[in-house]
Write a protein that binds this DNA or RNA. Structure first.
Length: 425
RNA sequence: GGAGAGGUGGCUGAGUGGUCGAAAGCGCCGGUUUGCUAAACCGGUGACCGGGUCAUACUGGUCCGCAGGUUCAAAUCCUGUCCUCUCCGCCA
């Protein structure tokens, strides 16, 4: 969320930003409620002061009669405080609800537009989109022919959207994990295998809504826990409620986790096969930084994504996400979209966002500059290193050969122990 | 899963109903002393939300894991919850 005082002081700018992002928020109402809150707060504090004074004087009362009189006075005052407190709570609840729905500010260079159609292609990967001299198959077809993915059994065991990876697909997934994590560790990221579940409090702190009609999140019945949708959740939660020294920043982490998404109502041709599933494995980058470090860090995360996909020699484009497509916490976001011959179009494979202090404020993650007074909110960034399911699609489809086999990308051969995926003899 | 102990400031740790936002020590900051360093000595040193100020000063409130409750008054009593530690059971 944004800082309350800052919103009040920049109401018009905030309102305009909401418009640019296509979010319907009444900032004026927020400002009014904040004003009311401040007034009532002052009233309550002065009543409290009185009541405290009376309470203190009871211990020093001369006799029982005086003591009883003061007790009565104290009771009456506390009564008033309670009434006022109830009103105040109500105002705060409504005010905070508006505050929570206000999205982050947007980077001045982010393209302004309603939805993903306004996204701006800003770069291409090193590998050009190939001209195939045969009709390419999509990964579903390939997976079936080479016995790599068993959607049918996945559906029987857990429902549509679940799958078994088999045979070389498993080796491919493991090779990709090892490839990505290796490269990240070399760049100073601390690798972590995270919990696949998190408390709802942490989900909310990172900006995910655990329950409700539009939720993407699986929650555990009778427990205050949900399955994570991304390692961003536990990694962001790592510093929730904490204050760290500035000399520990920037902090670069990479998390390996499973990701679970309900994907309610998202079926369709474009989400066939592995493209949109309920569970997948992902290597995620995450960074906590000082405010002045976050913009260069976003470029760094994007560069890591490019290097990973250039290394795999997969054609892709980089997209600068439009304001209307940013989602609440992101100040700026880049997506990598890999060429997927089976679909005949680019498909999103990574996404990296600078959330500035928006996420940190909700998480209450702060830093302290040594020798200075006070604390301030960190900046947080996240970026996909490799989302296994989608990277697997890109590899299968781009590396398929006319003879139906799949060549293994050079950089993965050592990890896979082979250079070609072929039908079993 | 069962039994027990405990969660207090940056850290260690005292505090069982009012004089406690909290002793003491450590650490940290400033100073004195001192060939340098160290030591010693003196002083200062929590966070959050308001009011106030150009900014200070000044000032009100809240905070002792978290959430409730009892009371005029809670770090202290009660309930729930989370976490940590020890023992037992179970298990990869």
């Amino acid at each position: 969320m944004l800082d309350r005082k800052w919103i009040v002081e920049n109401a018009q700018l905030v309102q305009q930003n909401c418009v640019n992002r296509g979010v319907d928020v009444d900032v004026t109402a927020f400002v009014e409620m904040d004003q009311q809150w401040r007034e009532k707060q002052a009233d309550m504090e002065s009543l409290n002061r009185e009541a405290n004074a009376v309470s203190k004087s009871i211990g020093k009362a001369k006799d029982a009669e005086q003591r009883e009189a003061r007790k009565e006075q104290g009771r009456a005052l506390r009564e008033q405080v309670n009434t006022l407190k109830a009103e105040l709570d109500e105002i705060v609840a409504r005010r905070d609800a508006i505050q929570a729905s206000i999205p982050n500010l947007s980077h001045p260079d982010a393209p302004i537009g309603e939805d993903d159609k306004a996204n701006l292609e800003i770069a291409r990967g090193k590998t050009p989109v190939p001209e195939l001299d045969f009709e390419p198959l999509d990964h579903v077809e390939l997976g079936e022919r080479l016995d790599l993915i068993d959607f049918e059994s996945g559906a029987r065991i857990a429902g549509a959207g679940f799958y078994f990876l088999k045979n070389d697909a498993v080796l491919l997934e493991l090779a990709l994990q090892r490839y990505a994590i290796g490269m990240l560790v070399d760049e100073g990221f601390t690798p972590m295998v995270t919990p696949d579940l998190a408390r709802n409090e942490i989900l909310q702190g990172t900006g995910y809504i655990p329950r409700g009609p539009e939720t993407q999140i699986y929650s555990i019945e009778n427990q205050d826990l949900s399955l994570i949708a991304t390692a961003e959740i536990p990694l962001g939660g790592l510093l929730a409620g904490k204050t760290i020294d500035d000399d520990q920043l920037p902090m670069k982490l990479c998390g390996l986790s499973h990701c679970f998404r309900t994907e309610a109502g998202a079926a369709g041709r474009a989400s066939r096969g592995l493209y949109r599933v309920h569970q997948f494995t992902k290597v995620e980058m995450f960074a906590f930084t000082l405010p002045e470090q976050s913009e260069p860090m976003l470029e760094h995360l994007r560069d890591m994504e490019c290097r990973l996909f250039d290394g795999l020699e997969i054609p892709y484009r980089v997209v600068d996400t439009a304001t209307g497509d940013l989602g609440g916490p992101a100040y700026r976001k880049y997506d990598l979209e890999a060429w997927m011959p089976g679909r005949g179009e680019f498909g999103e494979v990574t996404s990296t966002s600078n959330c500035t202090d928006y996420q940190a404020r909700r998480l209450n993650a702060r830093y302290k500059i040594k020798g200075e007074k006070g604390t301030r909110f960190l900046h947080t960034l996240n970026g996909t290193a490799i989302a296994l399911s989608r990277a697997v699609i890109a590899i299968m489809e781009n590396y398929q050969q006319a003879d139906g086999t799949i060549v293994v990308p050079e950089v993965l051969r050592a990890w896979m122990g082979k250079d070609k995926i072929e039908p079993k003899a």
